[in-house]
């Protein structure tokens, strides 16, 4: 299948992500849409490693590595300095994992969005702290095994809905995207780039290592997350106008769960309960989009 995307890449081959890493795919697509006038702020996450050790760099744009919880604040400062120099053309991006976004970096992110700082915050979501060895985050889904939710202590809390939390800030633009839908992702990044103020992209990025899946089904799993309504594709403008970008045919969540080692302990009953939860969330989203 031929993708309708520019050929130019801003990432060098030979980076050190695991085979099939969704986070690496997500960055590649993101930069295709943003181009070279981009400054990237990366708090601690798998990408602190993927981006390369001194003196090499995986990316063809300037990168500022920073402390785990500081993405929102550091990007605010970079923007302020560029503005002071009259450079309003360069796009500033904070690129963080789910831990750096949903958990430890949430305060700085919330502050930056409340101030409506002019940058794009991208969360690539692999649903756990992968850099430190697969520990649970508030983005880890209900039912998942991680190294801190082992055995029968598998996670029994829902995944935090980060997009809704940011929508509550009346953020000018928030959208979900997936590595399995690159054209949709590309369009959203391009759209975000053209908007002024705070923008948030939540990119679903499968992690073969942490999810206990073969690397070759990484993209397939990401696609199934969308097709089962576990990770709906939608966008919200000004915290008000919802648009759902993809209407699945209603695959059952258990198809998605069965392929992943991190869910293998779940019973039929657990899976039924998760199916109900997913349907609830989907109904709520449709309601917000004015569809029910």
């Amino acid at each position: 299948m031929q993708l309708e995307l520019p050929d130019r890449d801003y990432m060098f081959p030979g980076h050190v992500a695991c085979p099939g890493c969704g986070a690496a795919v997500a960055m590649r697509f993101l930069l295709k849409a943003l181009g070279e006038k981009t400054v990237m702020v990366i708090p601690a996450c798998c990408w602190s490693i993927i981006a390369g050790a001194y003196p090499q760099s995986t990316l063809k744009i300037p990168v500022l590595h920073t402390a785990f919880e500081t993405g929102g604040a550091v990007a605010s400062g970079v923007r302020a300095a560029l503005d002071m120099r009259g450079d309003t053309q360069t796009t500033v991006v904070a690129w963080a994992g789910d831990g750096g976004t949903f958990d430890i970096g949430f305060q700085a992110l919330s502050g930056a969005v409340e101030r409506n700082e002019d940058f794009i915050y991208v969360c690539y979501d692999n649903e756990a702290y992968m850099n430190t060895g697969i520990q649970r985050s508030s983005s880890t889904p209900y039912g998942a095994w991680t190294t801190t939710t082992p055995g029968r202590d598998w996670k029994k809390m829902r995944k935090k809905n980060i997009v809704e939390a940011l929508v509550a800030h009346r953020i000018p633009y928030a959208a979900t995207a997936s590595i399995a839908y690159p054209e949709d992702l590309f369009r959203k990044v391009a759209k975000a780039k053209a908007i002024k103020g705070a923008r948030f992209l939540h990119i679903f990025a499968s992690c073969p290592t942490g999810w206990r899946i073969p690397s070759e089904i990484s993209v397939k799993i990401a696609r199934m997350a969308v097709q089962t309504n576990i990770f709906p594709l939608y966008e919200v403008e000004d915290g008000l106008r919802y648009t759902i970008n993809f209407f699945p045919k209603g695959y059952l969540v258990k198809e998605y769960f069965r392929l992943q080692g991190r869910f293998k302990h779940l019973s039929e009953q657990d899976l039924d309960q998760i199916q109900t939860m997913v349907e609830e969330d989907w109904k709520l989203l449709r309601h917000k989009a004015g569809m029910s």
Binding site: V39, V41, L64, T66, A67, E69, T70, G72, A73, V74, A75, S76, G77, V78, R79, A80, A81, L82, M84, R85, Q107, A108, S110, G111, E114, R115
Partner: peptide, 19 residues
Amino acid sequence: VESEHSALAALIGASSAGA
């Protein structure tokens, strides 16, 4: 900003960009 932590973080960004 919303904390001292972010105050210094923001300046780390600003100073890295030359301000």
